[in-house]
């Protein structure tokens, strides 16, 4: 307990920002605390962490945590994060997004971030609904489930977030839920430690906007669903497809090595710096003013 209070005191913003905007029973507080525990275990200095978000309930997460925090426009967290990371690679950059934010309006940024393999971590808090705007169906609302814009049941089909990330090329993909809070923070920790682009899907719950419309009796009822409807990756391997119907897997889904963007880019820059032909070509372009030529000379 004292450890938890200590962690909260260290990483939550001290003044006036609490309580959060999140409803009672919301899973986002668990996602936030899992992220904080993971960062604490990795041992990052607070000044060396940037947390970036988009719009929606998850978008508010950076407001409460005492890092460099950037609350951007809807769907764009990863695109902003890309610039932050490329300008200052020493920062640990984490993008916290909801399912609508990351996968609908931000879907293009999400898949391209997976493909590029920049050393950042994306946490997708997946509660299957647009919570902040009042319960409209999202790209992860299951077929047949209700939203305020799917009053007769969703006719669309949901993304499998982790499978999408794997398909798009992410080099570390994991999933857990807010019921499995300890497992979640361990997975986020591994994601942060992973060199390359990592995705952690945190299955979460929105009782207010999703649970009530879809016949869950309480937030606890939704957590119970997470407990009963999930199996570990290891257990799933032993199960028949019929047994896995309606269930999601938890654990590390993909972990592989691939050259990381900034390492590749900087490696290229280093090679170019000792390539007289490349230096001559670039000097030919920028020969017209002294300072950059000097910068080149200094490097070359």
């Amino acid at each position: 307990m004292s450890q938890a209070i200590e962690t909260a005191r260290t990483y939550l913003r001290p003044s006036k920002k609490l309580p959060t905007v999140w409803c009672g029973g919301c899973g986002l507080g668990i996602v936030m605390s899992a992220m904080i525990r993971a960062i604490a275990r990795v041992g990052c200095e607070k000044n060396d962490v940037a947390v970036v978000s988009g719009i929606g309930c998850t978008g508010r997460l950076p407001t409460y945590v005492d890092f460099n925090t950037l609350h951007t426009t809807h769907g764009r967290a990863l695109a902003f994060a890309t610039g932050v990371k490329l300008a200052t690679p020493s920062l640990t950059v984490i993008a916290a997004m909801g399912d609508g934010d990351a996968l609908a309006i931000g879907g293009n940024h999400f898949i391209h971030s997976c493909r590029r393999n920049i050393d950042m971590t994306a946490i997708v808090a997946n509660n299957s609904i647009y919570g902040m705007t009042g319960g409209q169906y999202s790209p992860t609302t299951p077929h047949g489930k209700k939203g305020t814009t799917a009053p007769y049941g969703n006719v669309e089909h949901a993304f499998d977030v982790a499978a999408l990330a794997v398909g798009a090329g992410a080099t570390f993909v994991a999933r857990s839920s807010v019921y499995h809070a300890r497992e979640l923070d361990k997975l986020i920790e591994r994601a942060i430690r992973h060199k390359g682009f990592s995705v952690v899907e945190a299955v979460s719950n929105c009782y207010t906007s999703y649970g009530r419309l879809n016949k869950y009796s309480s937030p606890v009822d939704m957590l119970r669903w997470m407990k009963e409807s999930s199996v570990t990756v290891g257990a799933a391997e032993e199960m028949a497809p019929e047994e896995l119907e309606g269930k999601f897997t938890r654990g590390v889904i993909t972990e592989r090595e691939l050259p990381e963007f900034i390492e590749s880019y900087d490696g290229l820059a280093k090679r170019l710096a000792s390539d007289p032909a490349a230096i001559e070509r670039v000097k030919g372009i920028i020969r017209t003013f002294d300072e950059t030529a000097e910068r080149l000379n200094a490097k070359g």
């Binding site: 940037a50 970036v52 950037l70 951007t72 426009t73 764009r76 695109a79 902003f80 994060a81 890309t82 610039g83 932050v84 990371k85 490329l86 300008a87 200052t88 920062l91 293009n108 940024h109 391209h112 900034i262 880019y265």
Partner: peptide, 21 residues
């Protein structure tokens, strides 16, 4: 550093992020 982003929305987002850093 140079990066070709996936669209212009991401392009301006990336430069704002880089500027903040």
């Amino acid at each position: 550093r140079f990066i070709q982003m996936e669209d212009e929305i991401a392009s301006i987002a990336s430069i704002i992020g880089a500027s903040l850093a």
